[in-house]
Amino acid sequence: MNAPHLFVLAVDQRPWLTQALWGHTGTATPDQRAAATRAKHVVLDGLLAAVDAGVPRETAGLLVDDELGPGVAERARAAGVTVSVPLERAGLDVYEDAPADVAAYLAHHTPDLAKVLVRYNPEGDADANALQRRRLAATARAVHEAGSRFLFELLVPPTPQQRDADGWAEEIRPGLTLRAMEEIVADVPVDVWKLESLGPEQAYADAVALAATHDATCLLLGAGAPADRVDDWLTRAARSGFAGFAVGRSIWWDAVRGLLAGETDHAAAVATVAARYRHFVDVFREASPHDEPLTATGRSSA
């Protein structure tokens, strides 16, 4: 590889996970927390199985919370993969830190990457956008003072006027994403952008070029989409210079749901996660102009 890749398996879902499994977004019961923790350890086991099968360890990463995944980040770090932890209070339209004492949290976890998820539309509420930038500037300072890199997951929700517009995802959102990046980085130092699909390849290339102006790189998120759609997005992103991906539910949801429902066992769930993660790694590497896909033995085909 001419440039380092990063393939993150994202399993930091909290309200989404409790809603999907138990129909609520409140505090998990002790039994529910135990089940979620079990599931997130299985996801890590799948990542490590993929590394054992040949995914380069230096490119493998895990994004996980300690609310529903205690001990998972510690195991990942011990295994030598890149570790990222979330800092946002999940499910809010306007960003808030969680926990409130970000510096202490980072000092305890010492992540390679500290991640925020932010909903930001440059044509949305200007006051809310300005408030978010102020909050995120302070969060970014805390992250850098802790010696971590700042991973910014940018979601661009449509305004009411945009919601029903034709071509939202392919034609309208990509331009708004680039505008949002420009507005945010004027106040907030970002090291890695985690972005939604951007439609035409030129939009991906434009995002990479914009990120390069502040020495940042770009990762593609999966949005829980079917594998064939993620394959298409990954191909465009890799061709355009993205550094990798941060994909979660598209990889592990079927395995986790089956495991917790008693429809599959631990070994099968781990194998499913490993195979799907490795599939996306291979799709990306095959499309990258500077890389080669893995063979069945885990070695580059070059």
Rank of each mutant, 00 (worst) to 15 (best):
A114D: 11
L117C: 06
A205I: 05
V156E: 10
T159S: 04
Q132F: 05
T159G: 00
M181A: 13
P174D: 11
D206W: 08
A169D: 15
V192S: 06
R149S: 10
L234F: 06
E171I: 08
T159L: 04
R179S: 14
D228R: 11
P122V: 13
A140N: 00
N129Q: 09
R119N: 13
Q162I: 02
V156Y: 05
G224A: 10
E201M: 07
G199L: 07
P157I: 07
L198I: 12
W168T: 11
T177S: 10
K194G: 02
R229S: 14
P158D: 11
W193Q: 02
A212Y: 07
V190P: 02
A212R: 15
R149W: 00
E123L: 12
T177C: 11
A216K: 05
E201F: 01
H144W: 07
V116Q: 02
I172T: 12
A140C: 11
D125F: 03
L220P: 03
L176T: 02
E170Q: 15
D166F: 14
N129M: 05
C218F: 14
V185S: 15
L198D: 10
D187H: 14
A211H: 01
A216H: 06
P189T: 09
D215P: 04
L136I: 04
G199Q: 03
T235M: 02
T235E: 10
R229K: 10
A142C: 00
A227W: 03
E153G: 08
A209W: 03
D125A: 10
L220V: 11
V143L: 00
F150H: 04
P189V: 09
A138D: 13
H144V: 00
V230K: 01
Y204P: 04
A142T: 06
A169N: 15
L136A: 07
E196F: 10
D187E: 14
A114W: 01
E183R: 15
Q162T: 10
T217C: 10
R133N: 00
L195H: 06
E170R: 12
L113Y: 15
L154F: 03
V185Y: 01
L195S: 08
A216V: 11
H144C: 12
L117K: 01
C218I: 14
Q132S: 13
R135N: 11
V116G: 01
Y204L: 04
A130I: 07
A227I: 02
G224S: 06
P157H: 12
T177N: 02
A128L: 06
E171W: 03
A180M: 09
I184Y: 04
E123H: 15
A205S: 14
G175M: 02
G175F: 04
